[in-house]
């Protein structure tokens, strides 16, 4: 069974989506390690090391995601997690912005997959299966 770490980054308290992601991924055969809301980059990284996670799914709902995830990829590399897939989704930027622009910015920061608002976790399952299997 593959392990994925999920959580909501920064000072973000939106808890409902996080619970749904936990449920959906568990139902689909993943070992989900949920670090919950208000998590720091270090929390994600430490969790991924100890649990041997194959992917980290970062959620950000409150609009400050772009700031909260800066240098996260670099920290993963530093911690020996270069092989771990890094996803981000939710309402990752403030308001409505051009999706492809947003995606470009986050990919430049090292994220493997970037999901704009409206993308549900179910939609990302195929990507996850492709990237890490089940």
């Amino acid at each position: 069974m593959k392990t994925v770490v999920i959580g909501v980054i920064g000072a973000d308290v939106h808890a409902v989506g996080n619970k749904i992601i936990d449920y959906v991924l568990s139902e689909n055969g993943y070992n989900v390690v949920n670090i919950g809301v208000l998590s720091t980059q270090e929390d994600f990284i430490n969790a991924a090391i100890e649990t041997d996670a194959k992917a980290i799914l970062v959620s950000s709902l409150y609009g400050h995601g772009e700031m909260d995830v800066r240098f996260m990829k670099e920290k993963c590399d530093e911690a020996g997690l270069g092989h771990v897939k890094l996803y981000v989704g939710g309402n990752i930027v403030v308001g409505k912005q051009d999706v492809s622009e947003v995606e470009k910015r986050f990919k430049k920061m090292g994220f493997d997959r970037v999901y704009p608002p409206g993308v549900k976790i179910e939609d990302a399952l195929t990507d996850l299966k492709e990237d890490i299997g089940i």
């Binding site: 069974m1 090391i49 100890e50 649990t51 041997d52």
Partner: peptide, 10 residues
């Protein structure tokens, strides 16, 4: 020690 159950073994 090291690793959660199901986690890192290496």
């Amino acid at each position: 020690a090291g690793g959660t159950n199901g986690g890192n073994q290496e």
